[in-house]
Amino acid sequence: MTTATTESTGSSEGIPATTSSKATKVLGWLTLGGFAVLVALAFAWVPEDTRITEQGDVVGQFDAVRLMFVHVPSAILAYTGFGLTFLASLAYLRWRTDWWDMMAHASAEIGVLFGVLTLVTGSIWGRPTWQTWWEWGDVRLVTTLVMVLVFIGYLAVRRIPADVAVKARRSAVIALVGAVNIVIVNRSVDWWENRTLHQQSTLIARKIRDETLFTLSFSFAVGMVLFAWLLLHRFRTAYLQSQIEELEVNEALAERRAEAGIDESPGGRP
């Protein structure tokens, strides 16, 4: 996982040849190890979800409940990603630095990734629990779907070649609208069906078992480490890309000036 990019000290222009660093390696191994522990906990330690009703019937989600340890952290990571995009876009419009723009881009991509994962796992989980792949009456699922669609549009805009500042400004506006939109969509979908199938605040009410709660918290922790690892790599990729673009522009500039018959003395008069 961590060794996806080869180690190197960097190129002659002072641009690092890899997005990997000591920090990402630590995070990468932590993710890997954490994930192994999570799998063990989720499958071996947490018991299946069963209850015995007063009539003596055995009910519950059985093994399907283990999907929780992927679905719930995914959803949280997706919204962390979108939230970070929102904040970074706000910061970009305030300070207009490329750093915030790249941060917005990186976190939006991770947000979409986990958003899709949330929808897929939610669907799979819904099949045995709610007897349907998709439940329109569930506010959070529908909201997440619309949110993912909005940010797919955001990424589509980011893919259009344009001046760096123009693209950054345009993207920032979309991210802000998207974030405002999520509140409106959430409220309207809530009123639309006025009911939700999700287990309301089971976490706070402590109706779930200690093993499950521990494993769920652990999955959050692993998710956060994974998020940080991905974000660092993605951000550095964006940075490297911007460096390459800068080099290309400088090269084109030199070519253009050669066309004019000027030697290399940036900004100088002939």
């Binding site: 344009a162 001046d163 673009e245 522009v249 084109a252 500039l253 253009r256 000036r257 940036p266 900004g267």
Partner: peptide
């Protein structure tokens, strides 16, 4: 104008105009 550079996309249409 002092050393004015304008990029159209990545093409430097103006490459340092005074």
């Amino acid at each position: 104008l002092r050393a004015a550079v304008t990029l159209l996309g990545r093409f430097p249409a103006l490459a340092g105009v005074d």
